[in-house]
Computed example of a mutant assay.
Amino acid sequence: MYYLLKTEPSEYSYEDLLRDGITRWDGVKNPLAQKYISLMKVGDTCFIYHTGNIKAVVGLAKVISEPYKDDNNLWVVDLEPVSLFKNPVSLKALRAEPLFKDSPLLRMPRLSVVPLNKEQAERIIELSEAFN
């Protein structure tokens, strides 16, 4: 499976993930986002999306633990970085893609964990390689 995880880079950026090597993806309280975290499996690919002024997919991470509950009884997973995109994929670019028109990414913009299908995941990777 593929997921897009949103984070405010001033709180936790992809660069922080690279520095830390492994992190617990926590702080997600929305019930639907919690459901998606609870469905994650070891090896799932996560696209890290920076919110705020950036509004772009900036890199890839991999789920390295089964979902578990934290001290607040919220679902969390552990992640490790895979690769930082040389060319972030902007929200504007994703909005222009027909593959994303029905995605919760665009329909529910405040949702911090969004499932992606294989075609959407492949398209984000293609777009990250297309810009120079």
Rank of each mutant, 00 (worst) to 15 (best):
R19V: 04
V113A: 04
Y49L: 14
D71L: 00
L60Y: 09
Q34V: 08
S112M: 09
R123T: 04
V89E: 04
L60A: 09
G27E: 02
L39F: 11
I54R: 02
D71T: 00
I48R: 05
S65V: 07
R123P: 00
L32T: 08
Y12I: 03
P98F: 08
V58L: 01
Y49P: 09
Y12A: 04
S112E: 07
E15M: 00
V82I: 15
S103V: 14
A33L: 04
S128W: 05
S38C: 07
V113G: 03
G21N: 09
V42C: 05
V76Q: 01
G59D: 03
A121S: 14
P109M: 15
A130R: 13
N30C: 08
L106R: 07
D44W: 02
D26W: 04
V42I: 12
L99P: 05
Y36D: 03
Y49M: 13
F131A: 06
L84H: 14
M108R: 04
L94M: 04
H50W: 01
E97R: 03
A121L: 12
L99A: 11
A61G: 07
V89R: 06
W75A: 09
L111N: 07
P98E: 10
S38T: 05
V57Y: 02
Y12H: 05
Y3Q: 02
K35I: 03
E119T: 07
I125F: 15
V89A: 05
L79N: 07
A61D: 05
G59I: 04
